[in-house]
Design a protein around this nucleic acid. Sequence first.
RNA 1: GGGCGUGUAGCUCAGUUGGCAGAGCAGUUGACUCUUAAUCAAUUGGUCGGAGGUUCGAGUCCUCCUACGCCCA
Length: 507
Amino acid sequence: MENVNSLIQERINKTEKLKAMGVNPYPSGYRPDISISEALDRFGDMEEETLEKESGLYNFAGRIISRRDFGKASFFHIKDRTGRIQAYIRKNKVDDVGFKIFKLMDIGDHIGIKGRLFRTRTGELTVLAEGLVFLGKSLRPLPEKWHGLTDVETRYRQRYVDLIMNDHVKEVFVLRSKIIQSIRKFLVDKDFLEVETPMMQPIPGGATARPFKTFHNALGMDLYLRVAPELYLKRLVVGGLERVFEINRSFRNEGISIKHNPEFTMLEFYMAYATYEDLMVLTEELFTHILMENLGSLVVEYQGMTIDFKPPWPRISLFDALRDTGRVDEKAFHSREDAAKAAMEFQISLLPRDGHGTILTKLFDHLVEPQLNMPTFIIGYPTEVSPLSRRNDQNPDLTDRFELFIGGREIANAFTELNDPIDQKERFQNQVALREAGDQEALFMDQDYVRALEYGMPPTAGEGIGIDRVVMLLSDSPSIRDVILFPHMRSIETGSGDETFEENKDK
RNA sequence: GGGCGUGUAGCUCAGUUGGCAGAGCAGUUGACUCUUAAUCAAUUGGUCGGAGGUUCGAGUCCUCCUACGCCCA
């Protein structure tokens, strides 16, 4: 158990004193009748004389976040979800017991204040307390008032403290929620149906990525956390749900970085009778909608660069983008050997099983992707790296697919869906061969998905958009951890008594 | 997996050439009924991330481990 330090002990002692006075340190049932922002909005601009006449008695509630004590009076600020306001308590305005209770309160405690508003000599709108209710004891001291909490590890591990101390953090997560609402509204207005598909899947699919594995005891079977909802959503299109979308978590058992969290949120949507070209237009429309609704502008400052989202966005083929760098020999586009040679020049690690298309895509990822700051559609992905995409009619080695890059990162991936069950089965077989050759990211054979296609999927296009990355762009956040409330961290040594961990270790 | 950096009081941080572990804020005690980083006086608080080593002596030097950050794979 953790050592109880003197600061916590001091607060426990105060709690005991409150109890001795007959005060419940954790009461329930108190209801504020005005929020802080409401009070500020309604009375903030009022002249002092009007304020005196108009301001009635209100019940406020909030957490004490600062205090300036005098002998028989005190100024302090309280904070609720909507804002912060100053309060003033005077011994002769509340009774002796009330003031004694206040003296036992600390920064961090929750308090209910009955009072009316006035303006101090310095002009700040302030609640003059006529009564107070103790609403909840905080046993741990909050970080310092001036520097606040800056230690990133503590900010992520104890997000609750981060949220108390850093208003900007809360704003990011409010924006995140609003962005998701905008997306939902945009799609619902276009007659898309929101659905939920399995996160625990017997066969993981829909993306080339390493999955997490778990075990269902009652069924006696392995299950995987999904790496994408794709194959289930497309089964629904086969079933006649011609426009579907899902916004939820996917899981990838890969490294953690500034742009990767093991669980992340993705929007995937599928639209029958549409092509990947239609989706480029739709994507521009969607981003315009999100940006105008939440930021009121199509121009965004991100980490010192200015990103202009005004459509149309350039569409460049992957090979052309690679050519345009001028850093890859033309021969690399025509033979695997020369592509491999080019990759070696840039110290890109290759595997013997990597085909020509894979090598060129790796070159693109290395040389082009980080440079694509303005919204850019890259089209013409090799079939080899696109096992679920429809082949291009002119060139079957390429697919009807695009990825969207913004701020040097992949934001979206979309394609006209492969709805030829025979071609799909062959693609799966190629993936299985890669898996057998040791590629842990390769797709599994999914017979049921092939069977679904055999019933006939209408011509369809689908897209996945990384929500976390979109929120990063719109909130000017450098790390994905800044837009995920509880990002993954290594667990701190829990000691030998952690039975839950021991029990699951063998699985 | 590799490289660089960081870890000292509840929080934010100093700590010199290896020589008594510090400051501000918070806390405690006292004064104070218009302050807002309130003020004034006094004062408590430490597994210097962990283990080992070098040394008369280690927060400081060395090795290993650990967590976090950044870069690379």
